[in-house]
């Protein structure tokens, strides 16, 4: 099991030696037992770092945010950043490196292995506790999670409370790291990768449309999925043209003729267009960290759309985002044996 003290000591060491300007990690949050992301700049603060199954966030997002901040800053601080990364976070960092978003030497990846478990799904945790609130959630060793409530301590099989993405995780140990804490387990007794997608595919087209129509219809267009995604880093999203500046000189014709790929109104077809576009933009890039699904206020299973394309990438093109970061990106490469039979 990973001892959080090791992570703290390492982070403090990095900051003391001045190897990094800051360390992005998790600390105890204010929302119940859940951890929250934090940025440490002083070695003395390293004591607040935690590592337990409530460390839900994908911290790679904050690397992207820092990058954007530095780009806008007059006095950019180009020193490297340390980041505590789970398997999925490390894959996201790998894809960002592949896309030259930053250089390898600009990030120090403090890898932590999820070992036999992963992070909990707050909704599942709530259900399994039947209304009581958890005070503490810890790794129980092996494939179990130890939960402390006011009624006492109990150990649950991890399968009951783990997030869906963790059940289907293909790499619980960060492959890209500068230092690794915890063991790397080859075998985990959970679901096969892409299980949920395959189950959805087994239903008929009509049934799938009925489901997705229902989901797209409920979408609020709050764009939380886009905000939380470490790989949705475009300065201007295709669905909102913020660069179309309307001045007093803008004629009615210009306003009418501007390109609108997608309207912002939250109706079924426009939301479908938004979600499908987002899925395509993440094809071969999505690292299945499941953040979009976690933050969705109306519980749209967004992960399915992305994992569907990841499954095709893996099965048809032998490509995995985050694994093949030394190769050209999925859609900017091809092989002669790519599927051709669907073309007339």
């Amino acid at each position: 099991m990973v001892n959080p003290k090791e992570i703290r000591d390492y982070a403090a060491g990095l900051l003391e030696q001045g190897r990094v300007k800051s360390v992005i990690g998790y600390r105890r949050g204010t929302a119940g037992c859940f951890a929250e992301p934090c940025t440490l700049t002083e070695p003395g603060e390293a004591g607040s770092l935690v590592w337990d199954p409530t460390c839900l966030n994908n911290l790679a997002l904050y690397l992207v945010k820092d990058r954007k901040q530095q780009a806008a800053s007059r006095t950019p601080d180009r020193r490297p950043i340390g980041i505590v990364a789970k398997g999925c976070d490390s894959r996201a960092v790998a894809v960002l490196l592949q896309e030259n978003y930053f250089k390898r030497e600009e990030v120090v990846v403090i890898g932590v292995s999820c070992e036999g478990t992963g992070v909990v799904d707050p909704r599942k945790l709530k259900n399994s506790l039947k209304g009581r609130s958890a005070l503490k959630v810890e790794f129980g060793g092996g494939e179990s999670i130890r939960i402390t409530t006011r009624a006492g301590e109990s150990e649950l099989p991890a399968r009951e409370v783990l997030a869906d993405r963790c059940l289907e995780c293909r790499e619980a140990t960060p492959k890209l790291h500068d230092v690794l804490f915890g063991e790397s387990l080859a075998e985990r007794g959970y679901d096969a990768p892409f299980r949920a997608v395959k189950a959805a595919e087994a239903t008929s087209g009509e049934a799938r449309w009925a489901t997705w129509q229902h989901h797209f219809d409920r979408c609020l267009r709050c764009f939380a999925c886009r905000s939380v995604c470490p790989l949705c880093y475009c300065p201007e999203c295709v669905v909102d043209s913020t660069s179309f500046v309307i001045t007093p000189q803008t004629s009615a014709e210009e306003k009418a003729n501007r390109i609108r790929w997608c309207e912002r109104s939250a109706n079924t077809a426009e939301s479908a267009l938004y979600h499908l576009t987002r899925a395509i933009h993440l094809a071969g890039r999505c690292v299945d960290c499941g953040e979009c699904e976690r933050v969705c206020p109306v519980n749209i299973p967004l992960r399915l759309l992305n994992t569907k394309l990841e499954m095709e990438a893996f099965e048809q093109f032998d490509y995995q985002a985050g694994r093949d970061y030394d190769r050209p990106a999925l859609i900017s490469s091809f092989r002669d044996e790519d599927p051709n039979s669907f073309i007339r």
Partner: peptide, 28 residues
């Protein structure tokens, strides 16, 4: 070749959300 790979993904995605497979076609 790039189109083939990209549009294969689009086709699969459209089918996955339940659009009839015959609505999108590619030909050489």
């Amino acid at each position: 070749y790039l189109a083939r790979r990209k549009l294969y993904l689009v086709k699969e995605l459209l089918q996955f959300v339940g659009l009839e497979p015959d609505r999108f076609r590619m030909s050489w």
